[in-house]
Design a protein around this nucleic acid. Structure first.
Lengths: 375, 375
DNA sequence: CTGAAAGCGCTTACAG
DNA sequence: CTGAAAGCGCTTACAG
C-alpha cells in the first residue's frame, strides 16, 4: 500500500521552517530565484529538506514545467551484445548531457509497439532514440511521435523519413572483411543472408543492403559475383568465369522459424560434401553457429573453412573461435546520436541528417589460410 | 521542443462536446461513474477523445490518484542470459496483472544505486522487484524503500531482512549435477568458486553458499570433501582418504580483475600437467570458459575433462559444447515473485517469506565418461 | 527579502 | 443525468 504520509512535501518543510511554500519552492529550485533569499532562511530550509528526506514529486514537477527532461530509448536489447552495449552507452551519454531517460525494451513490452509509443507520449518525453531499429517499428509509429512534436533519432537503424540516422558504415566493414579473405587466398567465398521479402524490399533495408553491397564491392575487384537462393545453391555456382563470391539467401523464414539458421545450413552444407572455403556471416552470433557446425562435422577452422563475423562479441576472443570480425565505434555513434537528438529538440525545423562511423577491423585466426592454394 | 499544443486534454474534449470537464473525466475514467451518463453523451465524448487522439496525462493521474500502478524492477541485466530472461518474464507477469513497470538496469545507471532508488521513490512505485540481487545493493538501500512504505521482493537474490525471497533451489541442483558426475565414474571433481570476502561472509551469500553446499552434500554420500585456496591447489589434494571432491576458491578479485577467471585458471591447470577429471562450474558462462581452455590445450570434452554448468544458456546446446547443466523454473519463479509482491502491497503487515523452485537437470555430453575408470 | 495566488491535467466527492 | 469545485505537489510570475 502506498504510504503517502511517509513522503515529505514542500508544504511539510514550509510548516517546519515557518516560511511560505513559495519560499521553500524557490529555495529548493536553486538558481537565480534562490539567491534572493536570506542566507539564514535558505540554510534552514535546506537543512529541513535534508532532515525530512525531501524528494521532489516528479509528476508534479512534470505537470508544472513545460519540460520533462526525459528522453525515451526504444531498443531491442536482450540478445545481441552490440545492441546491449549501445543501449548502455546511450543511457550514459544522456545522463552526461543532463537528461533522464526511460528505456523501453520492445522484447519485453507486453502491449506491443503501439503501447510503448503511447507510454512515451504520455510520459511527455522530449525526444526518442531508436536503437537498432527493427521492422516491428513501422513508419506510422514514428509518425505518432513526430506528430506529437517529439524528435526522433535512429541509432544504427534503417533510414526513415524525417528521422536522423547515426550508424556504422556496414558497407565498408563487409568490404574490408571480404577483401581480407581474398588477400588470404580464399577463392570460394559464400555470404549468407536471410531472405526477407522481395528483392526490392530487402535492398531497402540498410543493414541488409549494405552487407550485400560491401561483399559485392570487394569481390568485384578481383573477379565475379553471383547470387542464389538456398534451394538452388551448389558448388557449381563457383565454377567457370572466375566466380569468387556468392551471396546466398536462406530459405524464407529460416531466420524466424529456425533457432539457428546458419548452424543448420552449415551442417547440411558440410554433409553434402562440397563447401566454400570461406563464409561471410552477418554477425558474430551467426559466425559462431557456422563454426560450431564446422567443428561438429570434423572440419578445422580456418584450414578447412574460414569464417568472418561482425560485432566483436566477447566470446569470439577465445582462441578456439578467434573470430575475425569488425567492431563498431559504438561510443562515437551513441555520443553523436545524443548530440543530434539534442539539436533537433532545440531546433525542430532542422532537417534530418545521416552520419556514419567506420568500424574497426579485428583480424583473428578464423580466416587465415594455411593450406597452399590450388592452381 | 516539447509541443504542448499538439496534445489533447480533457478540457479540449469538453469544449468540443460542449459538456463540462467533469463529465469528460467521468466518462473517460469508465467504470461505475461513466454508466450514469446519457448514452448519447458518452458516445460523443468517446468519439471526440478518439478523434482528437486523447491520451491521459500520466503525471496528472498519478498526482491525483493515491496509486501510481507502477512497479519498479531493479535488475542487473545485460550479461547473463538467465537474468535477462527473468527480467523479461517479470515484465510480462506485471503487465498481465495490470501493472505498469519501470525497469532499472543497475549496469546502465549513471548515478549508481543511490540514484536508482531515489528515482523509484520519486516515481511513487507501489512495489519493487529486485532481480538477481547483487552486493552493490546494500541493506540500507532496501531500507529506504521499505521506509517509504514500498514493499520489496527479491527474485533469485540473497536473503534480506523484511524482504520475501523467491528463488531457485541451487543446493539441490548442484547436488544433482555433482551426483551425476559421480555416477559417471568421476572421482576427482573440482568445484571452482570465487573467493569473495571472509568465509563467514561468503557463506552468507545464498548463491555462493548453496553452490558449495550442494556440491559438498553430493560428494559426502560417496567419499570425502576438501576445500582449498587457489594458491595451494594441487592434485595432491585428491590423494588418500578417498577424496572425491575439492572446492577451490579462486584468488581474491580474480573475478573482478580478470576478464575470464575460469578460462585463465583452466589454462594454467592444463599447463601444469595435473588436472581433475571433472569440473563443476558456477554457471554456463564459466563452463564455457573451462571448455574453451580445455579445447585450446588439446583436451577432449568429456574424455579428458568433464564439465558442468548452470543456467542452460543457449550456446550450451551446440553439440560441440553440449553443456550438462540445470535450468531454473524462471516462469514459476517470476510468476510467484509478482504474486508475492502483490500480496505484500495489499497487506503491508504480511511477514517476509521464502519460496523455492526446483531446477530441471539437463544432461548433455559434457560430462559423460568414455574412458575406463582407473582402479 | 518574502508571501499570496494561479494553474499544470486529472479525479472525485458533492450539489443540483 | 450533469456541473461546479476542491485539491494532488509543484513552479513561477507578481505584489508587497
Amino acid at each position: 500500500m502506498f504510504n503517502r504520509n511517509s513522503i515529505t512535501t514542500q508544504k511539510d518543510i514550509a510548516e517546519a521552517c515557518l516560511v511560505s511554500r513559495a519560499t521553500v519552492g524557490a529555495i529548493l529550485a536553486g538558481g537565480k530565484a534562490a539567491t534572493r533569499y536570506n542566507e539564514e532562511t535558505r540554510r534552514r530550509v535546506l537543512a529541513a529538506a535534508k532532515e525530512l528526506r525531501y524528494r521532489p514529486h516528479r509528476a508534479a514537477q512534470l505537470m508544472r514545467r513545460s519540460q520533462s527532461n526525459l528522453i525515451g530509448i526504444i531498443h531491442f536489447g536482450a540478445g545481441l551484445e552490440a545492441a546491449d552495449k549501445a543501449n548502455m552507452l546511450l543511457a550514459q551519454e544522456l545522463n552526461a548531457a543532463g537528461f533522464d531517460y526511460v528505456a523501453m525494451d520492445m522484447n519485453w513490452q507486453g502491449g506491443g509497439v503501439e503501447r510503448a509509443i503511447e507510454e512515451l507520449v504520455q510520459a511527455r518525453v522530449e525526444g526518442v532514440l531508436i536503437s537498432h531499429i527493427q521492422e516491428v517499428l513501422e513508419d506510422r509509429h514514428i509518425e505518432i511521435l513526430l506528430h506529437a512534436g517529439i524528435p526522433v533519432v535512429s541509432i544504427n537503424g534503417e533510414r526513415r523519413k524525417n528521422v536522423s540516422l547515426i550508424c556504422d558504415n556496414i558497407t565498408k566493414a563487409f568490404s574490408q572483411l571480404t577483401s581480407h579473405l581474398l588477400a588470404q587466398g580464399h577463392r570460394h567465398i559464400l555470404q549468407i543472408l536471410p531472405q526477407v521479402g522481395k528483392e526490392a524490399y530487402r535492398s531497402s533495408l540498410r543493414a541488409w543492403g549494405e552487407r550485400k553491397n560491401g561483399f559485392v564491392t570487394a569481390i568485384s575487384t578481383l573477379g565475379r559475383w553471383k547470387e542464389a537462393a538456398e534451394v538452388s545453391f551448389s558448388m557449381n555456382l563457383f565454377e567457370g568465369e572466375e566466380i569468387l563470391g556468392v551471396t546466398m539467401y536462406q530459405n524464407p523464414r529460416a531466420y524466424e522459424m529456425l533457432k539457428r539458421p546458419v548452424y543448420h545450413f552449415c551442417k547440411r552444407l558440410c554433409a553434402s560434401g562440397f563447401r566454400p572455403d570461406a563464409l561471410v556471416c552477418s554477425n558474430d552470433a551467426y559466425a559462431i553457429e557456422a563454426i560450431m557446425a564446422a567443428l561438429e562435422m570434423g572440419l578445422s577452422i580456418p584450414e578447412d573453412l574460414a569464417v568472418t563475423g561482425y560485432d566483436n562479441d566477447r566470446i569470439g576472443e577465445f582462441p578456439i573461435l578467434g573470430i575475425t570480425t569488425a567492431e563498431q565505434d559504438l561510443k562515437g555513434i551513441c555520443a553523436a546520436g545524443v548530440q543530434t537528438l539534442i539539436k533537433h529538440r532545440e531546433n525542430p525545423s532542422l532537417p534530418a541528417t545521416t552520419q556514419t562511423f567506420d568500424s574497426e577491423l579485428i583480424l583473428r585466426t578464423s580466416c587465415g589460410r594455411t593450406t597452399p592454394l590450388l592452381a
